[in-house]
């Protein structure tokens, strides 16, 4: 069973037990360019699948980050406030956005795994 899933909006969720770590994909950070600001959800907030959870801004673009699955925000990556560049440097590592306690793990089935996402990216040209 894969541990990382992706959405068509380029969020990823890395599953560790019943916790999901959410961020944006390497492709997304490259499209955005230098990230200058990240607005994170409040700890304890309950967010539904597909609802806006965060905002990521580069110099020339702003985009919403949606929750890949429903859950409660367990933790946020406060380090991004001072160093938003981490999103560019290590989107899958230190550049994570927030951790979710996953309400219903069956929602993961509707997402893409690594291979499906790689194939999806190819269709975007």
């Amino acid at each position: 069973m894969p541990s990382s899933y992706y959405t068509k909006d380029h969020e990823y969720i890395r599953v560790e037990g019943d916790t999901g770590i959410v961020g944006i994909s390497d492709y997304a950070q490259e499209q955005l360019g230098d990230v200058v600001f990240v607005e994170l959800p409040a700890k304890g907030a309950k967010i539904g699948k597909g609802e806006q959870a965060a905002v990521v801004e580069s110099v020339k673009a702003a985009s919403e980050v949606y929750a890949p699955v429903t859950g409660e925000v367990l933790d946020i990556n406060g380090a991004l406030e001072g160093e938003p560049g981490k999103v560019n440097q290590e989107p899958a590592g230190d550049g994570w956005f927030f951790k979710l306690k996953i309400t219903d793990s069956r929602q993961l089935e509707g997402l893409m795994d690594e291979n499906a996402y790689a194939a999806y990216l190819k269709t975007l040209g």
Binding site: F37, E57, S58, V59, K60, A61
Partner: peptide
């Protein structure tokens, strides 16, 4: 900080 502005955020 022009991401606040209309030419980037449009309706937001």
């Amino acid at each position: 900080l022009s991401t606040r502005e209309q030419h980037i955020r449009r309706e937001k």
